[in-house]
């Protein structure tokens, strides 16, 4: 990449994270959390993304049944054997033993969502056992008519009366090391990330916030890093269907003076 005209400014860079939704060992993508399409073999995709300069990967397992979860551990092992960038695994994680098994097989972090909301002590258990750095709190959030952002559970199907800011605060106190924030209003729209709630959490807490939901253009990434103050931005379908390619996205962000790894 020709960046001879860009002065060297050292420091931590903003991360670009492709997300792979996994069901029964295959990559899928839910549009507005519904109507899922098959986007291929996850390991193959993971290798492609890591070679293209993705900074990290997230695998969210949406397999419903317990017996099929064993395929996730096998998948994690295959991914860890083949890629040399960090990756997070999430989806249905509710026990310390689940996490131990995923980390042992090579995952760097795990994300917890519904189970942590129902039993917040899980966050403390996990951070004490494995360290905060590997505990990512995933929050699915939706802005209601009252203008407030609320927490949703079960992949966005169940509304709660808890405000996202309050839950995030509690979870960070319990030891969550990072927040993966998905806006249901924005997810699948390709109209851009939810900048207000992202900036709210990213400036309020001393843990990194990964913005998710709504990426449609390269400019949306610039917005979420500048206005949204996000530490990382996650997207799925636009990467899977090559609407945006990571090398071009990073080149664009560098030109826009957003620090990214080249």
């Amino acid at each position: 990449m020709d960046n001879s005209k860009i002065p060297v400014q050292r420091g931590l860079t903003r991360r670009i994270i492709p997300c792979l939704d996994i069901r029964d060992g295959r990559t899928v993508k839910g549009i507005n959390f519904e109507s899922i399409r098959d986007a291929g073999d996850p390991v193959e995709l993971a290798v492609v993304y890591s070679e293209q300069g993705a900074d990290e990967l997230v695998f969210l397992d949406i397999t419903a049944t317990v017996e099929k979860r064993k395929t996730l551990v096998a998948l994690v092992k295959r991914v860890a054997e083949q890629i040399n960038i960090p990756f997070t695994v999430g989806g249905g994680i509710s026990a310390v033993e689940d996490v131990a098994l995923l980390l042992k097989n090579g995952a760097d972090k795990v994300s917890v969502n519904t189970a942590a909301f129902k039993d917040p002590a899980l966050i403390k258990l996990l951070s004490n056992e494995f360290g905060s750095q590997c505990v990512v709190l995933a929050i699915d959030t939706k802005k209601e008519d009252d203008g407030e952002w609320y927490v949703y559970l079960n992949g966005g199907r169940t509304k709660t009366a808890t405000k996202t800011r309050d839950w995030a605060k509690h979870a960070v106190e319990l030891g969550a090391g990072e927040i993966l924030l998905t806006s249901m209003n924005n997810d699948g729209t390709k109209n851009g990330f939810a900048l207000d709630i992202t900036a709210d959490l990213a400036t309020r807490f001393n843990v990194p916030v990964i913005a998710s939901g709504g990426a449609g253009t390269e400019a949306h990434f610039k917005e979420v890093f500048e206005e949204g103050k996000a530490d990382a931005a996650l997207a799925a379908s636009i990467f899977h269907y090559k609407e945006i390619e990571i090398p071009a996205l990073k080149k664009y962000l560098q030109q826009q003076h957003i620090p990214v790894r080249n």
Partner: peptide, 13 residues
């Protein structure tokens, strides 16, 4: 102003 822990990609020199 900067978050702790540092998580991510940074330069070595």
């Amino acid at each position: 102003d900067l978050k702790v822990p540092q998580i991510g990609w940074n330069n070595i020199y």
